[in-house]
């Protein structure tokens, strides 16, 4: 059923690197069939090592969001299981095992100022104000919005709102950051700017990040590893490792290697979208 992983030397390389660090998330033959019978994911095996920046990319409807939600423990697999830090979901949220999810939309409370919005997860977890406030202003500073802490969401641009949403995720001091097309609605210039900020944050904070995008450039720029999914049913088509010095900046975007990665990824995506790549022939 599963498309066999190509046995090129890259994969041996991945295996070596992943073994260097303990896994943050292990997806073990996890499968998802929705109540209406849609087989969104065929059994998937995927190990995400601590500190990795892993990007899921693939044609629309191939199950990227579903896989991310499984990893976030927002939905349960129909079969197989997911391990977080080698244990079950019970330990998610413990010290050093925080998880934060950033949606495609900023999903801010329009009636609350930026700082109140960022403090929301801490308020919901009953963190006392004295402890929460420094973390909130730190998170707001990290996304460069200190001057806007007392503004309302409607007074911010789309990109700024998205940054507030990221600050809200950072305020919980997560170890695992899951993002579903967070910059999908933004123009390319703003997106590049936010990508630069994100990769810096990821590097400074040693975050493990799982990122979903439709943009080949964004995937290549950010990721240490890219997983290309194919649809019907959703499954891993191929995996690409981007072994480039960190933290990356504009010089990487301008490099010939960047263009080469993009070209190859784009070919893979085209292959993954072909009907012949489909596993399930009705």
């Amino acid at each position: 059923m599963n498309a066999p992983l190509p046995s090129d030397p890259l994969d041996a390389h991945i295996a070596r690197r992943a073994a260097d660090r303990p896994p943050a998330v292990e997806v073990l033959s996890a499968e998802k069939i929705f109540a209406n019978g849609t087989r969104a994911l065929a059994p998937i095996d995927l190990t995400i090592a601590e500190g990795e920046f892993l990007t899921l990319i693939g044609p629309s409807g191939c199950g990227k969001s579903t896989l991310l939600k499984l990893i976030a423990n927002l939905i349960q697999p129909s079969d197989g299981r997911i391990l977080w830090w080698r244990g079950d979901s019970g330990q998610v949220g413990q010290d050093g095992r925080g998880l934060a999810f950033v949606f495609q939309e900023p999903t801010l409370m329009p009636w609350a100022r930026v700082d109140t919005n960022v403090r929301l997860p801490l308020d919901l977890a009953d963190v006392p104000r004295g402890k929460a406030d420094p973390r909130v202003s730190d998170a707001i500073a990290r996304v460069g919005l200190s001057a806007f802490a007392r503004h309302y969401p409607r007074q911010l641009s789309g990109g700024m709102k998205m940054r507030v949403s990221i600050a809200r995720a950072l305020a919980t001091d997560p170890n695992l950051l899951l993002m579903d097309e967070p910059f999908g609605a933004l123009d390319e210039f703003t997106r590049n700017k936010l990508d630069d900020d994100l990769i810096k944050l990821w590097w400074e904070r040693k975050l493990t990040t799982v990122f979903v995008t439709h943009s080949i450039y964004e995937a290549v720029f950010l990721s240490t590893r890219i997983v290309v999914l194919a649809a019907n049913p959703g499954r891993i088509f191929r995996t690409m490792t981007i072994d480039e010095p960190q933290p990356r900046g504009q010089d990487f975007r301008d490099s010939a290697r960047f263009a080469a990665y993009c070209r190859e990824l784009s070919t893979w995506l085209a292959e993954a979208s072909l009907p012949s790549a489909s596993g399930a022939t009705p």
Binding site: A72, F101, F103, E105, T107, M109, L120, P121, L124, A125
Partner: peptide, 14 residues
């Protein structure tokens, strides 16, 4: 209720 916010609250076990 904004469905996005609602699921955010649910995710945080509010």
């Amino acid at each position: 209720v904004d469905p996005g916010l609602a699921s955010y609250f649910r995710m945080n076990r509010a």
